[in-house]
Design a protein around this nucleic acid. Structure first.
Lengths: 203, 203
DNA sequence: TCCTTTACGTACATAGTGTATGTATCCTAT
DNA sequence: ATAGGATACATACACTATGTACGTAAAGGA
């Protein structure tokens, strides 16, 4: 026989939103620490002080839960990037630079790196991940590169490779220490310049 | 009751090696097409015309099977890269360039991209993957960058970000068409130059 | 106050992993 | 040559995790 721990009325609309939020927070916490497959829905439920039924009610399956977690983290990162870029003035090149460095800093904090960079592409599958990433994060990079005058036929390829470089740099920073962070930013500056300067192309 | 399809003596040493190879081939095929979690050990066993028992005998669990598959593909790619680099003469810069382009071409063929770039880091976990990748693939890039005179304090960061750029480029090529391939190679050349030329550093 | 909807909790069906066990064949030592 | 272990599988079973069907109680509008 199940007995409610707290006698607070859990079924009101506000309370329901709160439990959904609790579940999501627990999911982000556990997924970022142990990875998708090593975390069971029951684990998430326990950490959120609910049963699996509640999880399946708010998020229709385990993938939905993970997807929601990834989207939440992605929005946080994107917000930080956009805010930094907008605060850096009008020059598109300066905005690009600032945005890239802000991305590196934002994604290496609050355990976003593992979920967003390592697991999301695999767990969600490429099509869904690409769509999510394109709509939220990469699109800003693409637009910034376009604004600074990257050759149109290289725009997509440049976006992809610069994005890949930043993602790998982020994972490398997370794994290493803060000394690595400075080096990563320095190398990133070089790559940004290369992406912009046509004179450096070709052998 | 199970009846052997072929009456060939399956238990000899050579035959055992053959079935192990068959199982690995089936695993590579299925994992690359459907992904790790969507493929069951039973699926692999069926495709290799054995039972799950044989799979668990040769590879002690599902992760071991995947690990073996990844290692095999990685060796193939590494061989192609080394061969191309050695055929390109003595100049370390030319070797670096040739090797990078060879990597991009090798990893985008024979379905290595999905297993090695998308799934392996997640499935195997970062520590094991990093170790495997460092010992086989990234180490060549690192050595080549070192030979061309990259600043020591930026060597690791440069290796990571260039590697990340190439990996993302590979996934982008696989997803797109052959027109994308040319653009990817062109952008990659720019990034390589940037990694080498100190004058492009800083804002 | 009734009635539908929401928000959960519970029980079960199913699938997939790993392991224990059985058996036939190979290999080696005597 | 043969006995005895080791190898190469196949089979059966236990356990875990997912998802779903169902039950219940409270919320909120009619």
């Amino acid at each position: 026989m199940y007995v409610k721990e707290d006698d607070m009325p859990r079924a009101s609309a506000a309370a329901a939103a709160q439990t959904a939020q609790d579940i999501l927070a627990a999911a982000i916490d556990l997924f970022s620490e142990h990875g998708f497959s090593a975390v069971s829905v029951d684990d998430v439920a326990r950490q959120a002080h609910v049963t699996r039924g509640a999880v399946y009610h708010h998020y229709n399956n385990k993938l939905g839960l993970f997807s929601a977690a990834a989207e939440k983290l992605q929005n946080r990162v994107a917000d930080a990037v956009v805010a930094a870029a907008e605060n850096s003035g009008e020059d598109p090149l300066r905005q690009l630079r600032t945005g890239c460095h802000a991305f590196l800093d934002a994604i290496t904090t609050e355990s976003a790196a593992r979920i967003l960079l390592a697991e999301a592409p695999t767990v969600l599958g490429w099509c869904q991940w690409r769509r999510m990433d394109s709509e939220n994060s990469v699109v800003h990079l693409r637009d910034a590169l376009e604004a600074t005058g990257v050759a149109p036929h290289l725009l997509e390829a440049t976006t992809a490779q610069l994005s890949g470089a930043m993602n790998e740099a982020a994972l490398w920073i997370v794994e290493g220490g803060s000394a690595d962070r400075d080096a990563a930013h320095e190398v990133l500056d070089r790559l940004i310049n290369a992406a912009l300067d046509p004179s450096t192309g070709g052998p």
